[in-house]
């Protein structure tokens, strides 16, 4: 079996309308992939930056996969939340990105979006906050059923990932 190590961090987020953010992350892989070691989901700390520009999570990632096939190459999915001073959480964005297939060190940026909903929901979002959320969060990393969704772009998530592959060349795979 070929193996993949994903080592790095979710560095943080930028360009969101407000800071004091945290993210829930997970990694999704196809059926041929087996998690040998490490966490495949988690939640970052809440960061309230002093300089108001970059929200730092420095969330370490260390995951070891074994695989029998290339189908379903792992991908990260994220949900970014804003936490206000009362401890209430509001959804600020969904996003996903594939784990790079080339071995080496990669700086990855993941763009995010949130659903806007109908006109009425947009008005109520402007005045009282809150907003629609996905009933089925799997939609974040699938390409089907997206066509009816209305969304707005939000900030981006920064990742620094090191990819180590093992035995891929033994099976004739060019990454």
């Amino acid at each position: 079996m070929a193996e993949v190590h994903i080592i790095g961090e979710i560095v943080g987020a930028s360009c969101f309308p407000e800071n004091s953010l945290f993210c829930k992350w997970g990694i999704h892989a196809g059926g041929a992939w087996k998690l040998l070691a490490g966490c495949k989901e988690g939640q970052s700390q809440v960061d309230i930056p002093v300089d108001e520009e970059f929200c730092a999570w420095s969330h370490p990632i260390d995951i070891h996969f074994a695989t029998k096939g290339l189908q379903g190459w792992p991908k990260f999915h994220f949900q970014v939340y804003h936490q206000d001073s009362y401890g209430r959480n509001e959804l600020y964005g969904y996003g996903f990105c594939y784990v790079p297939t080339a071995p080496g060190t990669h700086d990855v940026e993941c763009v995010t979006w949130r659903p806007t909903g109908q006109f009425r929901e947009q008005i109520s979002h402007n005045f009282v906050g809150g907003g629609p959320q996905l009933r089925n969060p799997d939609l974040v990393y699938t390409s089907s059923d997206r066509d009816l969704l209305h969304t707005v772009g939000m900030g981006k998530i920064h990742l620094q990932l090191g990819i180590i592959l093992r035995n891929f060349d033994k099976f004739g795979v060019e990454c």
């Binding site: 960061d47 309230i48 969330h59």
Partner: peptide, 13 residues
């Protein structure tokens, strides 16, 4: 990586 959901931090520099 575990248990970070309970921490709130202030980043400075």
């Amino acid at each position: 990586s575990e248990g970070r959901e309970v921490t709130r931090v202030k980043s400075q520099g």
